[in-house]
Amino acid sequence: MPVLADIYTQPVQLADFYVSNITDRKFTAALVKHLNITAPLGSFQHLKRVRGDKSKGHRDFVMIPRDHDDSVRESEQINIMMTSLLKSSDIPSTTLSKPYLVKVPICCPATRAQYEESSFYWPVTFHEDKRIAQMLSGTFFSKEEIQRIKNYLLEAESLGKKAAEKGQKHYGIVVVDPDTNTIIAKGHDMCRGSNPLHHAVMVGLDLVARSQGGGMWCLEEKSNVCELTSCESSNGQMASEKSGPYLCTGYDIFLNMEPCPMCSMALVHSRVNRVFYSTPHVDGGLGSKYKVHMQAGLNHHFDVFRWTGEVLSDIRAHH
């Protein structure tokens, strides 16, 4: 299941809008044209201006948001609005009936479900994002891909188990190059060793750096508490050759536990391709407490998927 930004998952939010019946339909086009100038929709561009109602044989016209300024009385506000709306036009004021209030959706629908819910209140425009739609429909991954994802998540889980056996936290990480389907690094939590920052993700990212000829931590010292695999095993020359992509560009990350905020931002800095995790954490940074990967303003965004199939991990969900 994808961990998407709130705009894809939140229920439709509503605002009050003034609406009028059009008493003379031949003025509809002129009204649309004129009111787009005198009463532009602003942030409500997704609303269609006219709603036809065949059963009642009339058309409604959406006008302006209700002003929540309580100092102006409702009826007064309506009067001011009506005189200003049709000012300097040839449209007779009788074309619009006395306005009444309806609820309209505040946001442009981002998914088909939101579109259907929104349309119940007022007709809206909708441009479906095919990629998001696929993610939501559960057809984004093929059967083979799902099996592969599951295997890597189980691998992360078994690394976590090893960590737990050594008195560390039950968190594991597998870094994979999806193009070649090879494992670049495997690691697990070591934060109860000498360095409290040695979370599984931080360890895994440093192992990748090391496979590229870099690295900042002396993880060997503690090899008794960490199961290390950098990519020497898959490609003997890599460690010395300083090859590999820029940081973790293109790599997929598999975790048995949702990363904390520190590790979530570490993954952003490292420019990973995608993150998959199996168990959510109440303070997690990729869906539960924050959606760090979705923060506006970041120079790098990536997709995050939470496993929602059968339970893959022994760790209890931290809710």
Partner: peptide, 10 residues
């Protein structure tokens, strides 16, 4: 020391 260590968390 990000460039030096090739580790974006450095």
């Amino acid at each position: 020391r990000v460039n030096e260590t090739k580790n974006a968390t450095c």
